[in-house]
Design a protein around this nucleic acid. Sequence first.
DNA 1: CTGAAAGCGCTTACAG
DNA 2: CTGAAAGCGCTTACAG
Lengths: 357, 357
Amino acid sequence: MARDDGKAKGDVGEGAAKKRATINDIARLAQVSKKTVSRVINRSPFVKEETRVKIEAIIEELGFAPDPQARGLAFRRSFLVGMIYDQPNPQYVVDMQQGVLEALRGSGYELVVHPCSRTSPQFLSDIRAFVERQKLYGVVLPPSASEDERLIELLDELDCHYVRIASVSLDEPASMLVTHDDAGAAEAARHLAELGHTRIAHISGPALFRSAHIRREGFVRGLKEHGLDLEARYSLEAGYTFESGADAGAKLLDMQPRPTAVFTGNDEMALGVFKAARERGLRIPEDLSVVGYDDSPMASRVWPNLTTVRLPIRDMGRMAAEKLLLQSSEDSRAAARAASDVRPALVVRESSGRPPA
Amino acid sequence: MARDDGKAKGDVGEGAAKKRATINDIARLAQVSKKTVSRVINRSPFVKEETRVKIEAIIEELGFAPDPQARGLAFRRSFLVGMIYDQPNPQYVVDMQQGVLEALRGSGYELVVHPCSRTSPQFLSDIRAFVERQKLYGVVLPPSASEDERLIELLDELDCHYVRIASVSLDEPASMLVTHDDAGAAEAARHLAELGHTRIAHISGPALFRSAHIRREGFVRGLKEHGLDLEARYSLEAGYTFESGADAGAKLLDMQPRPTAVFTGNDEMALGVFKAARERGLRIPEDLSVVGYDDSPMASRVWPNLTTVRLPIRDMGRMAAEKLLLQSSEDSRAAARAASDVRPALVVRESSGRPPA
DNA sequence: CTGAAAGCGCTTACAG
DNA sequence: CTGAAAGCGCTTACAG
């Protein structure tokens, strides 16, 4: 306000501390009120075409971008998108972050990361403080955070947008991205069945993860199509970790007769099975076929290369964030119309083959 | 302001839309001006003990936390900390994020992630827009972003705090965390020398990464201590990736005579060497010893387990963020005094042994 | 040690 | 289609 006098329009940033332009500068130069500039920024339809063009030109020229904090304060919400996750797989997390950032690029929104633990007593209060304090626009929820109904309730209460990513639909399409893990697991089952395996085992993830159930169910369905069953003793639950996979693998391989193929709920556990096989002098795939899930970078680095099911995680992050941004669009059904489905694909490599004679 | 009348103090949140308490509520209840509340929030020493205690009690009781956006607007900077990285290793990224978040917890700051590409033409303009628009408090810079002097200049210009994480000191202690990669690489050299190897090779990372040079130098120094040289033909440059490591490994193993040990600039490339060895029917460690760098999760999952050098990446993230927060402390030397050094440690596993007879 | 005024850069009602 | 006023929740000068 200090120098609202002398300086005529067109005269910008010549002083000592060339500060960033504000909405007031734009208004002055365009000879309109700041409210009209605000309308242009917020794409209000109630601006004369001529006025809009003029203002946009000046915005462009000065490289003006509205201050997200000031806008946020007035809007009573921020331009931050959170990613709340308890994903143990770092590649998953980083890939998804990248996808989310792709969608956010140029939108004026930024990504704030927030790992959590669903089993912590502060789980909900911590997230409440985070969302409330930062007045988050919305959050992207990969599994298994996406599967927590208490969390969803909380977000609803706080009026915070969200998109849930899960193996099956848990919500309406406008806030859901489904990865159809059952289909991916069924593909793995078909692959093993077609190779001729009949003694087929499965090591699932922890019960806390919905995906663990869905993948097992899909696998069972795939086997059924080929007239095969998943025998109860060949179906073990583990923790999505390398060690738990190795333990479960050891149990399976010590059975009589032992399975000739194992499908694990993720790649980490598949590598655990590799270890158990090696310790017993069993060759992969000659003596034992192994199929994982995720197609983590390790899958193509270990020997033999791991046959696995790939999820396009980066795309998923991008799609989820795109949907999230659409939730505030004028068109109330835009978010629901945006793509909600992702298809896993089997990647056949070296770790699966015909069963031993 | 609408209901600044009737309601007496002590009467809170009984209405329909129980909004969060503001500084005005606290001031009213404490019967002081909001400015005094502000002083308490900002730990000004110029508040009577009695007044402070009273205000703090009310803040505690209402669970009041100042709005970061409003504070940010008034302060002309935000309470966001950025992590700007071009790290190819996802585990590194996630671990460091976790460490940073540990340090930020309870501080009122949040972490905004921002991957970048130093070779992109928009590298600097993109970061300028990010830092300027969000008015970041500061950024944590892992390698190789930390090594980019253009970036540092830009951050200085924008008055954005930063802590650089690098293999050698590149800056003053207040904004530097040194990982001493040369010491880690020297340990690897000693280990191989002590096992009796004399034909020792090294595959370094890309020249763009300072760590690639530092690790090579440290390795050479370690060899020298044992009277050994790194022969020029046994010293190859690759790209820190699996494939480039496999290619370089293939070249080395096709030499006559071939090296009996290889130290790679990271674990990814070490696994590439595993592949090259397997393709040639060479056993590890009987025919070839391999030592990596990073101790990525893969190192303990592959077979044979990889001998490697471990960096406490999570601790590094925490330490860097702690230092960053101290940069705005009243004590101008607090940041410089905070720990600036991290020591890598050799983890001996199965991939290294005596050279073939 | 404490407070009244003005301002950070925007937007929401409310008028016209 | 456009604008003047008030406000979002804080802090910075400036007084006392």
